[in-house]
């Protein structure tokens, strides 16, 4: 399915007519010419330097001691004597551990809310017949036209009137049951064949039993996708917590980092260490769960 036969750049016309036929059964790279393979790897490595290089540079800066010149004209990617002192300096400047804890609390609420709320709603919308369903769906679909930034001001007014301004619950609440995720879970439940369900109905199973025993085991893929997206979305978010939170004690990591860079512009090593504290956990989550990620994106879990 992922076959694109690109001959070497310099000799396209000499392509033997028999080669495409041999490639038909999947083993694409077996028949790829050596020069093309080398060229592809060179380009891949080039793209790797561009996409990952800046992170490596930041990591390297964060590990350089105060005695090492970070401004040398020949960039030094390996620190001469790696040290964690910059990470300690971050902790001395801002309460970074409590910021990390705050981010984690917000992310956990987002994950739990979406996992429960969107699963229940998705199941009801996909598998149960009731009046008002079409209206509800139409309204949910309608909300997708609004970028979050459009309603962010009045969202703040709502959260404030609930007495939740400057709280972590206030940060997590508005997206704790995201409408897009409701639609994604509905799509996942709809993919379960009705025959499986009908048998259970005839056996007298309640809606709840059908959800637990037939529904859930079949939507685990989509469920993991929406929870991963909820986690990363909450962990990375900046604008909304920036609006809701005012007391520096309550900051999440992203807001705290911006605060750190404002307070500490003089030392790039410390800021670099701060960014790594926010970045490394999400990379670990991503690296562990990446196959769900890509499956989710392929299934159309595209956030606009």
């Amino acid at each position: 399915m992922t076959q694109l036969t690109t001959p070497p750049a310099d000799a396209p016309a000499k392509k033997p007519a028999s080669s495409p036929r041999r490639q038909r059964r999947g083993s694409g790279f077996g028949t790829m010419r050596r020069r093309e393979k080398v060229l592809r790897y060179v380009l891949l490595l080039l793209a790797l330097v561009v996409t990952v290089g800046p992170f490596v540079w930041q990591l390297s800066t964060s590990l350089k001691g105060a005695g090492e010149n970070i401004y040398t004209s020949t960039p030094q990617f390996i620190p001469s004597s790696p040290t964690f002192e910059n990470y300690l300096r971050v902790a001395e400047t801002i309460p970074v551990l409590s910021y990390a804890k705050n981010s984690l609390i917000v992310a956990a609420m987002a994950v739990a809310g979406n996992a429960v709320g969107c699963t229940l709603a998705g199941f009801a919308l996909a598998k149960l017949r009731f009046r008002g369903r079409t209206l509800f769906l139409a309204l949910v679909l309608g909300t997708l036209v609004l970028p979050v930034e459009v309603t962010i001001v009045s969202q703040y007014v709502t959260v404030r009137s609930l007495g939740l301004a400057d709280t972590l619950v206030g940060v997590a609440l508005p997206t704790a049951v995201a409408m897009l995720n409701v639609l994604l879970m509905r799509a996942a439940f709809m993919a379960i064949p009705d025959e499986m369900d009908e048998a259970a109905v005839i056996d007298g199973a309640s809606a709840w039993q059908r959800l637990i025993h037939i529904g859930l085991p079949n939507v685990r893929g989509m469920l993991s996708v929406i929870t991963i997206f909820a986690f990363i979305g909450a962990w990375d978010d900046f604008l909304w917590p920036l609006i809701v939170l005012t007391d520096p004690q309550n900051y999440t990591l992203t807001v705290g980092l911006q605060y750190l860079s404002g307070a500490f512009t003089a030392n790039p090593r410390v800021i670099a260490a701060g960014t790594m504290i926010a970045f490394i956990p999400i990379v670990i989550v991503f690296a562990t769960l990446q196959r769900f990620f890509f499956r989710g994106v392929e299934e159309g879990a595209i956030k606009g």
Partner: peptide
């Protein structure tokens, strides 16, 4: 039964999606 399952989503639709749109 459907509305019990739909409950959280309905609340969020009204309070955190439709109302903010109107209130803007």
């Amino acid at each position: 039964t459907p509305w019990l399952l739909l409950g959280p989503a309905v609340v969020w639709l009204l309070v955190f999606n439709l109302w903010p749109a109107i209130n803007t």
